[in-house]
């Protein structure tokens, strides 16, 4: 089990379209403790996804700094960021993005192909990850044989199979019904509480945000306010 804190200072991101400057993040400061579950909310264009991409090293900032654990992302090259991402970050997307021609187990195994690891160890890790997300009995199913919720569970297993420090989820329940969304959010709570993962989740849904310990509201690329949840840990709730 590993976890990392996140420190963001004066973060700026400007996009250019047809020579027009489009500021997305305007000097954002934000701290996220290791093992925290944070929901990122705000209107469209407020910079939520951009922030997620910058923290995940998928994009580079125009100015400012992003530190994840011991890693200062702005000092790293693209190749270094890619390598760092494979070891420290797990991504969960709204549309799951599973490879349709691979089974659930093979989809989960994909990130492990980047590591020098025995096949038996890889299989063990895949089995563990799928068992954690409750799909230990669906390992050989292909995405088209799974429901949306199950597909998202596979995507979560893929995100955690490398035991990353940080899980970044971009509207993970955006394409799911209320009941399935609740199951997915409970799963994220489990990863946060039982496995100590730092989770950053972009969402438009206040009910989803209520699962997080902290909700960060962004507005025009800046921190508008932070809210702390009084949500009971799952173990206590049980």
């Amino acid at each position: 089990m590993s976890s990392a804190d996140i420190e963001i200072k004066k973060l700026k991101k400007v996009y250019y379209k047809d020579k027009m400057e489009i500021p997305v993040l305007a000097g954002l400061d934000l701290s996220i403790s290791a093992g925290e579950f944070v929901a990122l909310m705000g209107p469209s264009g407020s910079g939520k996804s951009t922030l997620l991409h910058l923290i995940g090293g998928l994009d580079t900032a125009t100015a400012g700094s992003v530190r994840v654990g011991e890693s200062l992302l702005e000092t790293m090259s693209e190749a270094q960021l890619t390598s760092w991402r494979s070891r420290h970050v797990g991504f969960i997307f709204q549309m799951y993005h599973l490879v349709p021609v691979l089974t659930a187990a093979q989809n989960v195994e994909l990130p492990l192909l980047l590591f020098k690891m025995k096949s038996s160890e890889r299989k063990e890790r895949v089995k563990t990850a799928l068992t954690i997300v409750g799909l230990g009995d669906r390992m050989d199913h292909r995405p088209n044989q799974l429901s949306g919720g199950q597909e998202q569970r596979v995507a979560i297993a893929r995100a955690i199979v490398t035991d990353p420090d940080v899980i970044l989820a971009d509207e993970p329940t955006g394409d799911l019904d209320a009941k399935t969304s609740e199951e997915i959010l409970n799963l994220l709570n489990l990863l946060n509480e039982e496995f100590g993962k730092t989770i950053l989740m972009v969402t438009h849904d206040p009910k989803a945000a209520a699962h997080a310990k902290k909700t960060v509201h962004l507005e025009k690329g800046q921190l508008e306010r932070e809210e702390f949840s009084n949500r009971q840990p799952m173990a206590a709730a049980r």
């Binding site: 998928l58 991402r85 494979s86 070891r87 991504f91 993005h97 990130p111």
Partner: peptide
Amino acid sequence: SKELAVFKAIGFPS
């Protein structure tokens, strides 16, 4: 292309 983007996101070098 989206799937390949996910490959990159999960750490596959270009």
